[in-house]
C-alpha cells in the first residue's frame, strides 16, 4: 500500500497534504508560544525551559522536544521530496509554453514552489540562528532565548529575512491548507467557503502573530 501511494501522483499529493498539516499544527503552537515574549524575559525564558521538560518524569529531559524535532524533520523531508518529484513531473508534462501568455491564477497559487524554497532556506537559517547559534549576531547564550531573539531582531537583515519568510508562509498556507483539504477529499461545495475562510484566517493569524515579534523589538515594546 505504501508503494501504491508513493508511486501515484495522487498518493504523493496525499503525502504533501498530511506532512503540510503536521507542520501547520506545529506552527500554530509555535506562534502562540512566541507571543509569550510580550510578557517579559522571565516568563519567555521559563516557557522555553519548560519545553525541554515536557513529559517528565516519564520522559527524560528534552526527550519530548526531540520526538517533536524528529517528526518535524520527517514532515519537512516528505513535503520537500514529494514537492520536488511532483514539480519535475508537472514541468515535464507541459514542456512548451503558449506564445500568447496570460496572467493566470492567484498570487498565492503561483508562488507555491518559490515560496516553498524560500521557507526551506529560512528554516535552515532560523535553526542556525536561534537553536544552534552558529550564525547568531552577537554572543549566543543557550538558555536565554529572550536576549537571543532581541539580538537577531536588532539587525536589519534579521528583520528582513524573517518578515519576508513570514509573508511567504502566509501565502503558502493560504493556498496549501485549502488544497490539502481537496487532496484528502474532504472538500465539498457546502464546505468550500468555510475551508477558504479557515485558510485565509490561518494565513493571516500566523503571519501577523509571527511578525509581531520583530515589530515588537523594532518598536521597543520588547527590549
Amino acid at each position: 500500500m505504501a508503494r501504491t501511494v508513493w508511486d501515484s501522483s495522487v498518493g504523493k499529493k496525499t503525502v504533501m497534504a498530511v506532512s503540510g498539516l503536521v507542520m501547520l499544527a506545529y506552527l500554530v503552537v509555535h506562534m502562540l508560544g512566541n507571543l509569550k515574549i510580550f510578557f517579559g524575559a522571565g516568563e519567555f525564558d521559563h516557557y522555553a525551559h519548560w519545553l525541554r521538560t515536557i513529559g517528565e518524569p516519564f520522559m527524560h529531559y528534552e526527550w519530548t522536544l526531540w520526538v517533536v524535532r524528529v517528526v518535524l524533520v520527517a514532515a519537512v523531508v516528505a513535503h520537500a521530496v514529494s514537492a520536488y518529484q511532483l514539480s519535475r513531473r508537472d514541468i515535464k508534462a507541459r514542456p512548451s509554453k503558449y506564445v500568447h501568455k496570460k496572467p493566470r491564477t492567484s498570487y498565492a497559487t503561483r508562488t507555491m514552489r518559490w515560496g516553498g524554497i524560500i521557507l526551506g532556506l529560512f528554516i535552515v537559517w532560523h535553526i542556525l540562528d536561534l537553536t544552534t547559534g552558529t550564525v547568531h549576531p552577537g554572543g549566543f547564550q543557550s538558555g536565554h532565548p529572550y536576549q537571543n531573539v532581541i539580538d537577531t531582531f536588532s539587525t536589519w537583515y534579521g528583520n528582513a529575512v524573517y518578515i519576508v519568510a513570514m509573508l511567504a508562509l502566509g501565502l503558502h498556507v493560504r493556498h496549501g491548507f485549502w488544497s490539502a483539504a481537496q487532496t484528502l477529499g474532504v472538500g465539498s461545495r457546502t464546505r468550500d467557503r468555510a475551508l477558504k475562510a479557515t485558510a485565509n484566517l490561518l494565513a493571516l493569524v500566523l503571519t501577523v502573530g509571527f511578525i509581531s515579534v520583530p515589530v515588537g523589538v523594532m518598536t521597543g515594546v520588547v527590549s
Binding site: 508511486d7 501515484s8 501522483s9 495522487v10 504523493k12 499529493k13 511532483l86 513531473r89 508537472d90 514541468i91 515535464k92 508534462a93 507541459r94 493566470r104 491564477t105 497559487t109 507555491m112 493556498h175 485549502w178 488544497s179 481537496q182 487532496t183
Partner: peptide, 17 residues
Amino acid sequence: VAQMDEEGFGGCTLTGE
C-alpha cells in the same frame, strides 16, 4: 489514475484553470 500517470500527464496543484 495509474493510466493517467503512465501517460505523462502532470499533477493537480488546484489552480482551477
